[in-house]
Simulated assay, not measured.
Amino acid sequence: MTSPADLPAVLSVNLGTPRQVEWRGQQVTTAIWKQPVTGPIRVEGINFVGDDQADRRVHGGADKAVYAYAVEDYDWWSAQVGSLGPGTFGENLTTAHIDLTAASIGDQWHVGTAVLEVAQPRTPCFKLGIRMGDDTFTRRFALGGRPGAYLRIVEPGLIEAGDQIRLVPASLPSISVGALASGNLTIDELIAVSADDRVPDGWRIAVDRELARR
């Protein structure tokens, strides 16, 4: 029997706004530094209230409104690089007891008074390397196969640390976050992704290009 302590839940809500940091002799604007906050925080539109992104061309927007990363994946990384706290990878929600890599695009999370929907995996940019103080970390993160999940906001509401996550699985056929991030899809999977309007346009365009090459 599953106890409440083993159910999917939010361990931490993490917010941050853009700041300038010096990296390799240049000033870079980034909002990857996120800090845990207390109390219920409203999530609406394309963000948590009090959170922001530095460059909306590649970060944020409806299909990247909320980024989640699992404490179990942090444990895996910590064994390699040392202790890492919530928000280190720039996530808004640090979660427990939910396999984000196995999550399907279209899975819905009823959490707090909000409803979120898994939208896509993360493709890390160079700013993750800045956050980790290691230019090679962006590639290491991609190769690690633990991308975390971006979620869109289906219904606005309040979320706080300790909230349980009630999962409503995506209708089939669906593609997992890990499979989409891997790029190693079968023809049948590529066709399914191309036809799935829950998958963001950028991924579907890339899939259509891959189908045209095969």
Rank of each mutant, 00 (worst) to 15 (best):
S3I: 13
S3Y: 14
P4A: 02
A5K: 08
D6M: 11
A9H: 05
L11R: 03
L15K: 06
T17Q: 13
T17C: 09
V21I: 08
R24G: 15
Q26K: 11
Q26R: 10
V28E: 15
W33V: 09
W33A: 15
Q35K: 11
V37A: 04
G50L: 09
D51P: 01
V58F: 14
G60R: 09
V66Y: 05
A68P: 01
A68L: 02
Y69H: 04
A70K: 00
D75P: 10
V81H: 05
S83G: 13
S83F: 14
L84F: 01
G87H: 04
F89L: 08
N92Q: 07
A96D: 06
H97A: 04
D99A: 00
D99K: 00
L100S: 07
T101I: 12
S104M: 14
I105Q: 01
G112F: 00
A114G: 01
Q120P: 07
Q120S: 04
P124W: 01
F126D: 03
K127D: 05
R131V: 07
R131D: 09
M132K: 05
G133E: 05
G133R: 02
F141A: 13
A142T: 14
A142Q: 09
L143R: 14
P147Y: 01
Y150S: 05
Y150P: 02
R152Y: 13
V154H: 07
E155R: 12
P156R: 10
G157S: 00
L158G: 07
I159V: 09
G162F: 11
D163C: 01
Q164D: 04
P173L: 12
I187Q: 15
D188S: 12
E189L: 13
A192L: 09
V193G: 06
S194V: 14
D196H: 09
R198F: 05
V199E: 02
P200N: 02
P200S: 06
D201Q: 08
G202D: 13
I205R: 13
A206P: 11
A206N: 09
A206Q: 12
V207R: 00
V207E: 07
A212E: 02
R213T: 10
R214W: 15
